[in-house]
């Protein structure tokens, strides 16, 4: 159901106690609505209670993001500049309502 792939850079940048956490941010446009994904590293201990793992990978999401992720093949990459890490995905810009 989920196909989450972490590139070598992402695996290397992810600390041992961290996982990738997907969020879904609803955005209202008058009387329409869409949403946007974001992915970031979170310490496993700080994950929200309702977060669930996506397959066997170190990736988690809340149910509302889970639903929009289902069926997507997602590749997670990471760009680092010194200590600063930026995790990116190849997910579409929008969740898919306004398309």
């Amino acid at each position: 159901m989920f196909s989450i792939t972490l590139t070598a850079a992402a695996r290397e940048a992810l600390r041992p106690d961290e996982v990738i956490f997907f969020e879904w941010h609803g955005i209202g446009v008058c009387c329409a609505h869409d949403g946007e994904f974001s992915a970031r590293p979170v310490r496993r201990a700080r994950l929200p209670r309702r977060a669930r793992q996506l397959g066997d990978d170190p990736a988690f999401a809340l149910p509302v993001a889970w639903m929009h992720l289902a069926g997507h093949a997602v590749t997670i990459d990471c760009h680092t500049w010194g200590r600063w890490r930026r995790f990116t995905t190849d997910l579409p810009c929008l969740g898919g309502t306004v398309r």
């Binding site: 008058c30 329409a32 639903m67 969740g95 898919g96 309502t97 306004v98």
Partner: peptide, 20 residues
């Protein structure tokens, strides 16, 4: 438009809600 008939609503009715 909104309140009686709004084309924008069809964007919610397709996409997000049907998956839930």
């Amino acid at each position: 438009a909104c309140g009686a008939l709004s084309g924008f609503h069809s964007l919610i009715s397709s996409g997000t809600t049907p998956k839930m």
